[in-house]
Measured scan of single mutants.
Amino acid sequence: TVKFKYKGEEKQVDISKIKKVWRVGKMISFTYDEGGGKTGRGAVSEKDAPKELLQ
């Protein structure tokens, strides 16, 4: 599970739902399947990112 803040809201998403991951400076950005055909997005700092996300 990845915990992150998006627009001031605390969120979390299961690693299995993450589609795409990329690095922006010291942040790790990602998109994930929100269900219902929607794609969500989020970002975590490199130090807070789970190891599975960095692979």
Rank of each mutant, 00 (worst) to 15 (best):
T1P: 06
T1M: 14
T1E: 06
T1I: 15
V2L: 13
V2T: 02
V2S: 01
V2M: 08
V2D: 01
V2P: 01
V2C: 03
V2Y: 02
K3T: 12
K3I: 13
K3D: 04
K3A: 07
K3G: 03
K3V: 13
K3C: 09
K3S: 09
K3R: 14
F4D: 00
F4H: 02
F4P: 01
F4L: 03
F4R: 01
K5R: 13
K5S: 11
K5A: 07
K5W: 15
K5Q: 10
K5I: 15
K5T: 14
Y6S: 08
Y6V: 12
Y6N: 05
Y6G: 03
Y6K: 06
Y6T: 07
K7T: 02
K7Q: 09
K7S: 05
G8S: 05
G8N: 07
G8I: 02
G8H: 05
G8L: 04
G8P: 00
G8R: 03
G8W: 03
G8F: 04
E9I: 15
E9Q: 14
E9N: 08
E9S: 08
E9A: 12
E9G: 08
E10S: 10
E10F: 13
E10K: 07
E10P: 08
E10I: 12
E10Q: 11
E10Y: 14
K11T: 06
K11M: 11
K11Q: 06
K11A: 04
K11D: 02
Q12N: 08
Q12F: 12
Q12A: 11
Q12S: 14
Q12Y: 13
V13C: 07
V13L: 06
D14S: 13
D14V: 07
D14T: 07
D14W: 08
D14G: 07
I15P: 02
I15C: 06
I15M: 11
I15E: 02
I15K: 02
I15Y: 06
I15R: 03
I15V: 09
I15T: 06
S16W: 11
S16K: 10
S16V: 10
S16I: 12
S16R: 10
S16N: 12
K17I: 07
K17Q: 13
K17V: 08
K17W: 08
K17E: 06
K17N: 10
K17M: 14
I18G: 00
I18C: 02
I18K: 00
I18P: 00
I18T: 02
I18R: 00
I18V: 08
I18A: 01
I18Y: 00
I18M: 06
K19D: 07
K19R: 13
K20T: 10
K20W: 09
K20D: 08
K20Q: 11
K20I: 07
V21C: 08
V21W: 12
V21Y: 06
V21E: 00
V21Q: 03
V21L: 07
V21P: 01
V21I: 12
V21R: 03
V21N: 02
W22H: 04
W22Y: 08
W22N: 03
W22L: 04
W22I: 04
W22Q: 04
W22K: 04
W22D: 02
W22C: 06
R23S: 04
R23H: 07
R23T: 05
R23F: 08
V24R: 10
V24I: 12
V24F: 11
V24P: 02
V24A: 10
V24Q: 13
G25V: 02
G25A: 05
G25H: 05
G25F: 04
G25C: 06
G25D: 05
K26W: 07
K26P: 09
K26G: 13
K26Y: 12
K26C: 11
K26D: 14
K26V: 11
K26T: 15
K26Q: 12
M27C: 13
M27W: 15
M27K: 07
M27R: 07
M27E: 04
M27Y: 15
M27T: 09
M27V: 10
M27D: 04
M27Q: 06
M27F: 14
I28G: 00
I28K: 00
I28R: 01
I28D: 00
I28W: 04
I28T: 01
I28V: 07
I28N: 00
I28H: 00
I28L: 10
S29K: 15
S29T: 13
S29C: 15
S29I: 15
S29W: 15
S29R: 15
S29H: 15
S29M: 15
F30K: 00
F30V: 01
F30Q: 00
F30R: 00
F30G: 00
F30D: 00
F30H: 00
T31C: 09
T31L: 13
T31D: 05
T31S: 07
Y32W: 09
Y32I: 02
Y32N: 00
Y32F: 14
Y32R: 00
D33H: 05
D33F: 05
D33P: 02
D33I: 07
E34C: 10
E34M: 15
E34I: 13
E34A: 15
E34P: 03
E34N: 08
E34L: 15
G35F: 05
G35K: 05
G35V: 08
G35I: 06
G35H: 05
G35E: 09
G36I: 07
G36D: 14
G36T: 07
G36F: 12
G36W: 08
G36K: 08
G37N: 07
G37E: 04
G37V: 03
G37Q: 04
G37F: 04
G37K: 05
G37T: 05
K38D: 04
K38F: 08
K38M: 09
K38Y: 08
K38P: 03
K38L: 09
K38G: 07
K38W: 05
T39A: 06
T39M: 15
T39I: 15
G40W: 05
G40C: 07
G40N: 06
G40R: 07
G40M: 10
G40T: 05
G40S: 08
G40P: 02
G40D: 03
R41C: 13
R41D: 03
R41V: 13
R41E: 08
R41A: 06
R41Q: 08
R41H: 13
G42Q: 02
G42L: 02
G42P: 00
G42F: 04
G42Y: 05
G42C: 03
A43S: 14
A43W: 15
A43F: 15
A43C: 14
A43V: 14
A43H: 13
V44R: 02
V44W: 02
V44H: 01
V44A: 02
V44G: 00
V44C: 05
V44F: 03
V44E: 00
V44Q: 01
S45G: 07
S45E: 15
S45I: 08
S45V: 09
S45M: 14
S45K: 12
S45P: 14
E46G: 08
E46R: 11
E46M: 13
E46K: 09
E46A: 14
K47Y: 12
K47I: 11
K47R: 13
K47C: 09
K47G: 10
K47N: 10
K47M: 12
D48N: 13
D48Y: 13
D48F: 12
D48H: 12
A49S: 06
A49N: 01
A49H: 01
A49L: 05
A49K: 01
A49Q: 02
P50C: 04
P50G: 04
P50Y: 02
P50K: 02
P50W: 04
P50S: 05
P50H: 04
P50M: 03
K51D: 11
K51F: 15
K51G: 09
K51S: 12
E52C: 07
E52Y: 11
E52P: 07
E52I: 11
L53Y: 02
L53P: 01
L53A: 01
L53T: 01
L53G: 01
L54E: 03
L54C: 06
L54W: 08
L54P: 02
L54A: 06
Q55W: 12
Q55C: 12
Q55M: 15
Q55E: 14
Q55D: 13
Q55G: 08
